[in-house]
Design a protein around this nucleic acid. Structure first.
Length: 344
DNA sequence: AGTGTATATGATATCCCTGT
DNA sequence: ACAGGGATATCATATACACT
């Protein structure tokens, strides 16, 4: 009975139910390559919401606080970020996403429009943003061939330009081409016609009408941002011309070393506008374990360095090798958590 | 304190020149 | 004819300041 009245209650996904502050999203390639035009913050917001939704899309509602969002994405600006956050929750409601469908019968390609969310709101009293993905969008994503790319939320947080975010996700969505087509094992590429690129990035014909400006502002400058962000991806471009006209752009992608990120945030008195919900004691261990695992994946080199350093240090009272290994791992993880900042 | 005005800043658009 | 790059114009927003 209560299920009928409040069908959503049991199905809301939060950092709590996930047991961890989300650090990455498995994003459907259809989304990475779709047509949509979200502001940078709204883009990060949808990524956060997607990160909370289970991969099988069995439930579509995600709830989180501004503090959750900041932790996940690496925001630390306080008031200004909060304003952007608020307007982004509204923006998400209005936005449309077009996904390219290939007809099974005719093989023809067609762009179909969906709304991202069926609801998206911020409750000022509780400080909780709640976003529900549109069931129609979920249905179509389940129908399409399920190919995902793993995207770190913190990496998205380091990109400011919306075009940088889009190009980044597109590049990552093609990373399965690594080593194919004569590429070396850490390189891949993809190509896009200029018109197609305009469409996908939401840069209509009346903005950046000069191709050179389009290329400069929408392609080259955002790519420079990606390359300088030190998030493990390096892109160079090549022109594909038809006569003198720029017909398409080829994006050469290369897996690059991550720049060790400086500890972000909490410079001054950082007071999150909203408190993170308390961690349930039952889930705390699981949450920590998940975070540790992801930190290890994210910063393997750093982990290895801390680990060997910890091992080589003499320890009092530790007799067995096994215990020493466990202690070293704990110490290395502690360093990672200390350095990269983890939700307590 | 509240209001209105001036200035700074940043993003975008347009014009101009050069080289191919 | 087109791309690249510099200079300038335009617009919106943020910040500073003066006045009542």
């Amino acid at each position: 009975m209560s299920d009928e009245l409040f069908p959503e209650i049991a199905e809301i996904n939060t950092p709590e139910t996930l047991g961890v502050t989300p650090r990455y999203v498995l994003q459907h390639n259809a989304i990475s390559r779709s047509i949509h035009d979200l502001s940078a913050t709204a883009k990060k917001l949808t990524a956060m919401a997607m990160a909370l939704i289970p991969a099988d899309m069995s439930s579509l509602t995600a709830s989180f606080t501004f503090a959750d969002f900041c932790k996940a994405i690496g925001y630390d600006k306080g008031g200004e970020s909060f304003k952007l956050f608020l307007s982004a929750t509204k923006e998400c409601m209005k936005n449309i996403i077009s996904i390219e469908m290939v007809s099974a019968k005719t093989g023809k390609k067609k762009w179909k429009n969906y709304t991202w969310f069926s609801s998206s709101e911020f409750d000022e009293e509780t400080g909780i943003a709640t976003m529900k993905f549109a069931p129609e969008l979920a249905a179509i994503l389940l129908e399409l061939k399920r190919v995902y790319a793993k995207i770190n939320l913190a990496d998205l947080g380091k990109l400011q330009s919306k075009y940088a975010l889009r190009i980044y996700e597109m590049a990552v969505s093609y990373s399965s081409l690594k080593g194919k087509d004569g590429n070396s094992s850490d390189e891949w590429y993809f190509e896009r016609e200029v018109q197609n690129l305009r469409k996908i990035l939401g840069v209509s014909g009346d903005i950046y009408t000069e191709t050179k400006r389009f290329r400069q502002k929408v392609v080259e400058e955002p790519i420079r941002e990606i390359n300088q962000a030190g998030i493990g991806l390096e892109i160079t471009t090549e022109s594909i011309k038809q006569g003198r006209k720029l017909a398409a752009i080829r994006f050469n992608c290369k897996a690059a070393a991550r720049t060790i990120s400086k500890r972000r945030g909490r410079k001054k008195a950082e007071k999150p506008a909203l408190e993170l919900p308390k961690i349930n004691p039952k889930t705390a261990g699981l949450r920590e374990e998940k975070e540790n695992q992801h930190l290890k994946e994210l910063y393997p080199d750093e982990f290895a360095a801390h680990y060997t350093a910890a091992l080589s240090r003499p320890r009092h009272g530790v007799v067995s090798l096994n215990l020493a290994l466990i202690a070293a791992e704990a110490e290395a993880l502690g360093m990672l958590r200390e350095f990269h900042g983890i939700v307590k």
